[in-house]
Design a protein around this nucleic acid. Structure first.
Lengths: 210, 210
DNA sequence: GTCTATAAGTAGATAGAC
DNA sequence: GTCTATCTACTTATAGAC
């Protein structure tokens, strides 16, 4: 593994586990067992590392988003698809832990992030349209934008929201809970099947917690 | 106005407008036209100022929350009550702009914040109960917790969510939009009146934007 | 590519005069 | 209460040897 890749790999671990703000360039070089000078040879600074990590995240997320085209046609598909998105976000969770700071500090990155969020929103919107076409959902058109916004909000701030609670969940449990939370947003639009689907989801959710 | 109060007042303005992270102790003293030494005479540092500001926010918010007891018995009441909460948050919006950082940096403040959020959640839950008792809402009990979480998420992250958009709204418009967003969360549970209420809300919302 | 050593810059904090 | 001056601590960034 090349030093450049090792830097990205270890930085991601440190950022995710300890928080991005807490890690200095020297901390990262220590964790790698290399000198700060060497780190600077590969990356001009911490911001360059972060940009490198965002490159990976952006690429992977765009692949996931584009992979949904016409493939999510049932409530179960939707459940699985949410899982995939949330797991990708979890892999790069330090970005989402304090979005505000990062966007303030790196304006160029802020634009790329906003653009990615916009594509995410479009994808969610399309998925809802597909589910409506497949008659899995019946949504008042006037509520579509609001519902999309609400789903986006949950998909973007679930990690920060969890840190508001005293007893934080581990990753897998939190992802599961969040999928459930998002699915519940569309339960009222599932018509007759809504309550059944809800019961199955709750059973599934409760079972996974034991 | 005493220097101590002027410090709190000007700091709040600076934090809200320019961001908390961007302001150093020296910046604040410059804005006040006093020396850094004098600032340190009144507050041991920026964290002491932030604590002082949180004291005010916490006190005001708890009064608002406790003021709701049994007083929110209609959809219209709920609309107004959301307004009051959102406006209070907006006054101290720098806390919500990057919650993650603040909670990391000041663990004691994090506990107080979590406790306040918990009381907020209880209040929202009680209000929903009251609305159900008043037969303004009809909610499946299994969805109550999820709905409460969803409302809390919106009330906590609306400011950060707005900064994800390219064209940010001004304060009044954003508050209005957010009230609308939260109200739409309960539209599916209004029964027969839901669609009527939605139409009225949309009319009201559109009218306010022109 | 990698190291050591060090410069340069910044924020936080205090001492002592007025 | 308020000031000036200074000190400490920490982080980023670079220079030059190996």
């Amino acid at each position: 593994m090349k030093t450049r890749d090792r830097i990205l790999h270890v930085s991601l671990l440190l950022f995710n586990e300890e928080g991005e703000a807490q890690q200095t360039a020297v901390d990262i070089s220590n964790a790698l067992g290399i000198s700060p000078g060497n780190l600077y040879y590969h990356f001009k600074g911490k911001d360059a590392i972060i940009r490198g990590l965002f490159d990976s995240f952006e690429e992977e997320m765009r692949i996931i988003l584009r992979g949904s085209r016409g493939r999510v046609t049932s409530i179960e598909d939707n459940w699985v698809y949410l899982y995939i998105i949330l797991e990708e976000i979890y892999d790069f969770r330090f970005f989402y832990r304090n979005l505000g700071v990062l966007l303030d500090r790196y304006p160029d990155l802020a634009n790329r992030f906003r653009s990615l969020v916009a594509e995410q929103r479009t994808t969610i919107h399309n998925v809802l349209d597909d589910l409506r076409d497949a008659e899995a959902l019946s949504i008042d058109p006037r509520l579509m934008e609001v519902l999309t916004d609400q789903m986006m909000m949950t998909l973007t701030f679930w990690l920060e929201a969890d840190s508001m609670n005293r007893n934080n969940l581990d990753g897998a449990a939190l992802i599961h809970k969040t999928v459930f939370q998002v699915m519940c947003l569309i339960v009222p639009y599932m018509g007759e099947n809504g309550m059944d689907a809800l019961s199955r989801m709750i059973a599934h959710y409760e079972a996974s917690r034991t």
